[in-house]
Structures are given as C-alpha cells and as structure tokens.
Design a protein around this nucleic acid. Sequence first.
DNA 1: TGGACAGGCAAGCGCCCGCTTGCGTATCGT
DNA 2: ACGATACGCAAGCGGGCGCTTGCCTGTCCA
Lengths: 97, 97
Amino acid sequence: MGDVFKALADPTRRALLDELQERDGQTLFELCTRLLHRGVGSSRQAVSQHLDVLEQAGLVRRRREGRYTFHSLDTSPLRAITRRWRIDPEEDPCGSA
Amino acid sequence: MGDVFKALADPTRRALLDELQERDGQTLFELCTRLLHRGVGSSRQAVSQHLDVLEQAGLVRRRREGRYTFHSLDTSPLRAITRRWRIDPEEDPCGSA
DNA sequence: TGGACAGGCAAGCGCCCGCTTGCGTATCGT
DNA sequence: ACGATACGCAAGCGGGCGCTTGCCTGTCCA
C-alpha cells in the first residue's frame, strides 16, 4: 500500500488530516475555509482532488448526505508505518516510570 | 519536517530503509546489490541520490571510513508521524487480554 | 419551478522528481 | 607510481503530480 505514503507526501493533504482530526465529518467547503485560516490557500477542486487521494489511501471516508459530502478520518492505515520499521523508544519524555 | 514524508513517498527509498533495518551499516554497493535481490533494480547513482534524500530527512546517517561510506538507519523521525495523528488501537489481533 | 448551492468530471498545463550520463576525486592494492 | 575501486557532483531529460479551467449533475429553498 504505497498509496498511504504518497498521500502523506503532500503538505496540503497532511493539513487536511490535521483538520479532520480536530473536527471530524466536515464538508468540502468547510475544509476549504478552515484550511484558509491555517494559511493553506487551495481551490475547491484542488482540495477535492486531495481528498480523492486520501480516500484512495484509506485515510478518509466519504459519506454522502443530500447535497453534502461529509469526510471522516481513518488513521488505521498509518499502523503499517509503525509496523514496518522498528521505532526506537522515546528517551522517557514524561517520566513514565 | 515534511522531508520525512517526501522521503517515504518513494518505494525504492522504503526498500532501502527495509534493507538497513535488516542489516545496518551497509555501503552503497552493498545496498545496490541487495536491492537487486529484492527485485529493485536501480543504478548506483540513483541509489546514492535516494540516500541523499533519506539523509536529509534524518532517516539515514552516513559515516565515511576510508573509501567506504557506511549507512545506518535512524527511525526516530518516524515518531513525528505517530505523534501527529492519533492512531486507533488494534482490534486485539493477538488476544492480549 | 427556477435559481442558488454543494459537489463531480475531465482536459490541459507547469513544475518537481527520479533517473541517466559523464566526469571528477579520494582511497586502496601491488 | 599506477590502475582499480568506491563514491561524489552536476547537467539534462522524461514522466508524474498538483493545480487550474470549464462545464455538468444533483439537491435544497422560496
């Protein structure tokens, strides 16, 4: 599933994942306007195409309802990354002991 | 650090990380020949450029020794991924309870 | 029912990315 | 010292990616 990595390669798509994590179930226009507030200025079509890529990577699910299309985040494909490479443990950042 | 995501976007670079995880401290030629055995046929220059990208992303460290350059894996930048997005827990795949 | 709204589809374009090619440099063996 | 080895550097090229443009479909409201 190299699609996941390709999907993560673009900063706008990563911002979309950030936005969906902060507020799930947003529409296309909502995401566009909130991206603007983040300083990411992308047109509606551009964002839509980004969401296509994210959907194909399994990171975003679409739910049509009337004339609205709601988008929800699915981070489960990201587990493939943590499974593939052994990630060294942290240097005890919060004193878990 | 969007460099990490860009570095992971290429399948050859991911194979290089796999190879270094399996055997750390390989030279350029070693990596080339072992990639061939994995079915990834890339020239020396191509692999070298890939290693440049990986080094710039902080995923690979280079250590010059005589006329050899050894490469070692550093997975710590990958933690940024797991930190950025909340990854849903597994569906109890191995019955940990 | 007509118009506004939310979104989809497809072609075209510019640019970056990955690869090749050619040459240069430093180190090792004999 | 000379050739071979291991690698770096830089220019050039082709293909893919992201964006735009234009038009179309479907849905809600007065």
